[in-house]
C-alpha cells in the first residue's frame, strides 16, 4: 500500500473541507467543515510519521485534536450565544464582532 495514496486522500479531504467553508453559510456546518480540514491534516501527519518510522508525528496529531476540541467548544459557545440573542445564524450577517 503506497503511502502517497494516503497523502492524496488527505489533500482531497482538505479540499472538500475548504469548498464547504466557502460554500455553506450556516456557522454550524462551517465548523464541521473545519473539522474535515483538521482531520485531513491529521491524516497527513500520521502518514509522514509512518513513512519516517517516527512517533513524533503522532504526538503532533494529538495536539491537533486538542486544538480542534477547543475550537469546537468556543465555536459552539458562540453559536449558542448568537441563537440566544436571536441573531440570524448566517455568516454573511456576522459582519462585525461587537460585543
Amino acid at each position: 500500500m503506497d503511502l502517497s495514496y494516503f497523502l492524496v486522500l488527505s489533500a482531497l479531504l482538505f479540499a472538500t473541507g475548504a469548498i464547504g467553508v466557502l460554500v455553506r453559510r450556516s456557522p454550524l456546518v462551517i465548523l464541521l467543515c473545519l473539522e474535515l480540514m483538521l482531520n485531513a491534516g491529521n491524516l497527513a501527519l500520521l502518514t509522514f510519521s509512518r513513512s519516517l518510522a517516527d512517533q513524533q508525528g503522532q504526538v503532533l496529531a494529538l495536539v491537533v485534536m486538542v486544538v480542534a476540541a477547543c475550537e469546537v467548544v468556543v465555536g459552539l459557545g458562540l453559536i449558542v450565544a448568537a441563537y440566544r440573542r436571536k441573531l440570524p445564524l448566517n455568516v454573511d450577517e456576522f459582519r462585525t464582532l461587537r460585543g
Binding site: 503506497d2 503511502l3 502517497s4 497523502l7 492524496v8 489533500a11 509512518r50 513513512s51
Partner: peptide, 17 residues
Amino acid sequence: LSIAIVASGLLALDSGG
C-alpha cells in the same frame, strides 16, 4: 497539494513505509 506530494520525492512515499 497533489503535485507537491508527487513531486516531493519524500522518503518511502512510494512504498508501504
